[in-house]
Measured scan of single mutants.
Amino acid sequence: MAEQVALSRTQVCGILREELFQGDAFHQSDTHIFIIMGASGDLAKKKIYPTIWWLFRDGLLPENTFIVGYARSRLTVADIRKQSEPFFKATPEEKLKLEDFFARNSYVAGQYDDAASYQRLNSHMNALHLGSQANRLFYLALPPTVYEAVTKNIHESCMSQIGWNRIIVEKPFGRDLQSSDRLSNHISSLFREDQIYRIDHYLGKEMVQNLMVLRFANRIFGPIWNRDNIACVILTFKEPFGTEGRGGYFDEFGIIRDVMQNHLLQMLCLVAMEKPASTNSDDVRDEKVKVLKCISEVQANNVVLGQYVGNPDGEGEATKGYLDDPTVPRGSTTATFAAVVLYVENERWDGVPFILRCGKALNERKAEVRLQFHDVAGDIFHQQCKRNELVIRVQPNEAVYTKMMTKKPGMFFNPEESELDLTYGNRYKNVKLPDAYERLILDVFCGSQMHFVRSDELREAWRIFTPLLHQIELEKPKPIPYIYGSRGPTEADELMKRVGFQYEGTYKWVNP
C-alpha cells in the first residue's frame, strides 16, 4: 500500500466541504435556525453545542446559521458558553472563530407547556436576519415526558411559513410498544414523516454505516452471507464503567431499553437485511423493517440478565456495585447486563442465532459485530482449526478484520490463527472521521433520513421486546451478580454456547 501524504486539518475539512456542497440537498446560502429545546441540560452542553461548534469551526454548516437555545432556566448566552465550552476542545488559535460562533447564538427562556412562551420564541426567531423565511431545525434534547406539549406548541407557534421545518427526537422513544405508539401517533398528527428525525446516534458511527458497503459492494461476501456458512452472529456493546452516581436515570430504563432495543437491534438489521433497491432512505429502511418483521418476540429462556457488584480487589469506582450508587433505588432489580438470542425467521437466516450482548462495568470498552462461520467440513488438521470470524469493530479503534487459519512457519503443516486486517487509523491517516452527532446533524440539514429511525421500524423493535420488558417488570427477577471489570455473568457464556457459538479464547485482536 502506497504511503499517504499527511494533510493538514484545513485540507481534510476542505475535502469534506467539497463532498457536502456538491450535493443538491445542502442549501449552503439559505438562512437556517437550529433550535435546541432543553438548552440547559446535560445532553445540550456535552453533545449538541459542542457538535454545532465543530461543524461551524470546520465550515460545514450553511453560511447563515443561527443557534437558539430554549429552556425553562433563566440563562444568558454567557451562561450557555460557560457550561458548554469546556466540552468544545477549542484551541487558543480558534479564539476569534469561537467569538464568531457565540455571536450567532441567542437564548430564550420559557415554559414547555405555555403557548405564550412559544409565541415569544417565534418572535425572537423572526427578528433574526431573514428569520421569518429561514429553515428551522428543532432538536428535542428533553425528557420524553414533555415531548407531547413541546411538539404541539412548536407546531402551533414556531413553524417557518416559507422555509422547511424538521424536528429531531432523542431516544428513548417511549418505554414499550404502547407508549411508543402513543408518542408516534401524537407526533405524526403534527408533522409529516419526512419532517421527523428520530435519532439513534449509533447509526451515525462510521463502521455501522460501513456495514452496507461491506455487504453490498464486495462480491466475495454475497455468496457466504447466509445460514449455510454463518453459524452465529454476535452483536456486542461493552462499557468498562458503571453508573457513577447517575444511576437514578438509568434505573428508569435499564440496559435493554438503553442499548439493546435500539443500538444493537439497528446493527442487527444492517447485518441481516436484503440488498435495498438503492441507497435512498426509504429503500434502506424498507429492508430493515422486513428483517424486524421476521423476528419473533424474545423468549425468556433465551435471556440472561445481570447486575454488577463491587470488586473487592478493585480501586475507586470498581469497588462499588450498582446498588451502592446513592441515586439507585434500594434493592433495585434493574439489569445492567443483558444477553438475548433472537432468530430472523426467513430463508437466508433460518436457524442462525443472533446474540445481542450489552452491559456496564465490564472488562473493556468495545462495540462490534462478529460473524462466526461454520467449521470446515472434512477436517484434515486433527481438530487444530478454529472457526473463521469476520469482525466489524465499531469502537474504539474502528477496524474490519477476518480471523482465519494460516500455516505456522516451519517444517510442518501446523495451522495457527491469524488475521486479515483493515484498521482505519492506519489505512486512512488523512481522513477526519466525523463524530456520530456531527454526521447525523449534517444529515438533518441535508434532509437525508437514511440513518434515522422510521415509525414502522420503531414499532417493530418495541413489538419484539415489550413482552419481555413487561414480564421483567411484573416478576422482578433478581439479576445474576457479576463482578465489576469482569466479562459479565458466566451464564451468558453458557447461553451463547448452547445456541452454537464457540468461544476459543486463544486469539485476541490487537490494534496495530
Score class of each variant (00 low, 15 high):
2 A>K: 15
3 E>Q: 08
3 E>R: 15
4 Q>G: 11
5 V>D: 13
5 V>C: 11
6 A>W: 08
8 S>C: 05
9 R>H: 09
16 L>A: 05
18 E>C: 10
18 E>H: 06
18 E>R: 12
18 E>P: 05
19 E>G: 07
19 E>W: 05
20 L>E: 05
23 G>E: 13
24 D>Y: 15
24 D>M: 11
26 F>S: 06
28 Q>W: 12
28 Q>G: 07
28 Q>K: 06
32 H>A: 10
33 I>C: 07
35 I>S: 06
35 I>D: 01
35 I>E: 00
38 G>C: 03
38 G>I: 00
39 A>T: 01
41 G>Y: 04
42 D>A: 11
43 L>Y: 13
44 A>C: 03
45 K>Y: 08
46 K>Y: 10
47 K>T: 13
47 K>H: 10
48 I>E: 00
49 Y>N: 00
49 Y>M: 04
50 P>N: 03
50 P>D: 00
50 P>E: 00
50 P>T: 03
51 T>H: 14
52 I>G: 00
55 L>I: 03
56 F>R: 01
56 F>N: 01
57 R>W: 00
59 G>Y: 02
59 G>V: 01
60 L>G: 05
60 L>Q: 03
61 L>A: 01
61 L>W: 03
62 P>F: 03
64 N>G: 07
64 N>P: 05
65 T>I: 15
65 T>G: 01
66 F>W: 13
66 F>H: 09
67 I>N: 00
68 V>R: 01
69 G>V: 00
69 G>A: 06
69 G>M: 02
71 A>Y: 03
71 A>V: 01
71 A>P: 00
72 R>L: 06
72 R>E: 08
72 R>A: 06
73 S>D: 06
74 R>L: 07
76 T>E: 04
77 V>Y: 04
78 A>D: 11
79 D>F: 03
80 I>N: 01
82 K>D: 05
83 Q>A: 13
83 Q>L: 05
84 S>H: 06
85 E>P: 00
85 E>W: 04
86 P>N: 04
86 P>L: 05
87 F>N: 13
87 F>S: 04
87 F>G: 03
90 A>H: 07
92 P>C: 06
93 E>H: 07
94 E>I: 02
94 E>V: 05
95 K>P: 02
95 K>I: 07
95 K>W: 09
95 K>F: 14
96 L>I: 15
96 L>H: 11
96 L>W: 11
96 L>N: 09
97 K>M: 11
98 L>C: 04
99 E>I: 05
100 D>H: 06
101 F>K: 00
101 F>W: 02
102 F>H: 03
103 A>C: 05
103 A>L: 07
105 N>D: 00
105 N>V: 12
106 S>Q: 05
106 S>D: 03
106 S>C: 05
107 Y>F: 11
107 Y>R: 01
108 V>M: 08
108 V>Y: 06
108 V>C: 14
109 A>N: 08
109 A>E: 06
110 G>D: 00
110 G>Q: 01
111 Q>F: 06
111 Q>K: 08
112 Y>V: 03
113 D>N: 04
114 D>T: 08
115 A>T: 08
118 Y>P: 00
120 R>P: 05
121 L>I: 05
122 N>S: 10
125 M>Q: 00
125 M>V: 13
127 A>I: 09
127 A>M: 07
128 L>T: 04
128 L>P: 10
128 L>M: 10
129 H>D: 08
129 H>Q: 11
129 H>P: 11
130 L>G: 13
131 G>A: 06
131 G>L: 03
132 S>M: 10
133 Q>R: 10
133 Q>P: 15
135 N>V: 02
135 N>A: 06
135 N>R: 03
135 N>I: 02
136 R>Y: 10
136 R>F: 05
136 R>D: 00
137 L>Y: 03
137 L>N: 02
137 L>M: 14
137 L>A: 07
138 F>R: 00
138 F>T: 01
138 F>A: 01
138 F>L: 01
140 L>N: 04
140 L>F: 06
140 L>G: 00
141 A>P: 01
141 A>D: 08
143 P>D: 13
143 P>Y: 04
143 P>I: 07
144 P>V: 14
145 T>V: 14
145 T>I: 12
145 T>W: 11
145 T>K: 12
146 V>T: 08
146 V>K: 11
147 Y>R: 15
148 E>C: 08
148 E>I: 12
148 E>M: 12
148 E>P: 14
148 E>S: 07
149 A>I: 11
149 A>F: 09
149 A>E: 08
151 T>E: 07
152 K>Y: 09
152 K>C: 12
153 N>Q: 12
153 N>Y: 06
154 I>E: 00
154 I>H: 00
155 H>M: 07
155 H>V: 04
155 H>E: 03
156 E>I: 08
156 E>N: 07
158 C>D: 01
158 C>S: 03
160 S>H: 06
160 S>N: 12
160 S>V: 08
161 Q>G: 12
161 Q>H: 11
161 Q>D: 08
162 I>L: 10
162 I>Y: 12
163 G>L: 00
163 G>N: 02
164 W>M: 04
165 N>R: 03
166 R>M: 02
167 I>M: 13
168 I>M: 08
169 V>L: 11
170 E>W: 01
170 E>M: 04
171 K>F: 04
174 G>Y: 07
174 G>D: 05
175 R>M: 12
175 R>S: 09
176 D>M: 03
177 L>C: 11
177 L>I: 09
178 Q>C: 10
178 Q>T: 10
179 S>Q: 09
179 S>E: 11
180 S>L: 05
180 S>Y: 07
181 D>Q: 06
182 R>P: 06
184 S>C: 05
185 N>T: 09
186 H>K: 09
188 S>A: 11
189 S>K: 06
189 S>Q: 12
190 L>M: 08
190 L>K: 03
191 F>P: 00
192 R>F: 09
193 E>P: 04
193 E>V: 03
194 D>H: 04
194 D>A: 05
194 D>K: 10
195 Q>S: 06
197 Y>V: 00
197 Y>K: 00
198 R>G: 00
199 I>R: 09
199 I>C: 05
200 D>F: 06
200 D>P: 10
201 H>P: 10
201 H>Y: 10
202 Y>S: 14
202 Y>L: 14
202 Y>I: 14
202 Y>W: 11
203 L>A: 15
204 G>R: 15
206 E>V: 08
206 E>W: 05
207 M>R: 03
208 V>W: 15
208 V>M: 14
208 V>P: 15
209 Q>N: 15
210 N>E: 15
210 N>C: 06
212 M>I: 05
212 M>V: 04
214 L>N: 08
214 L>E: 02
215 R>L: 01
215 R>T: 01
215 R>G: 01
215 R>C: 00
215 R>K: 08
216 F>C: 03
216 F>P: 00
217 A>Y: 02
217 A>D: 05
217 A>L: 00
218 N>L: 00
219 R>N: 13
221 F>N: 07
221 F>A: 12
222 G>C: 09
222 G>P: 06
223 P>K: 15
223 P>W: 03
224 I>N: 13
224 I>H: 05
226 N>S: 13
226 N>D: 08
228 D>A: 10
229 N>D: 05
230 I>W: 01
230 I>R: 02
230 I>H: 04
230 I>Y: 01
231 A>C: 08
232 C>Y: 04
233 V>K: 02
233 V>I: 06
234 I>C: 12
235 L>W: 00
235 L>T: 03
237 F>E: 07
238 K>Y: 15
238 K>A: 10
238 K>T: 15
239 E>I: 08
239 E>Y: 04
240 P>L: 10
241 F>A: 15
241 F>W: 10
242 G>D: 09
242 G>Q: 04
245 G>V: 09
245 G>D: 13
245 G>C: 07
246 R>F: 14
246 R>S: 13
248 G>C: 11
250 F>S: 05
254 G>A: 03
254 G>C: 07
255 I>M: 06
255 I>W: 01
256 I>P: 00
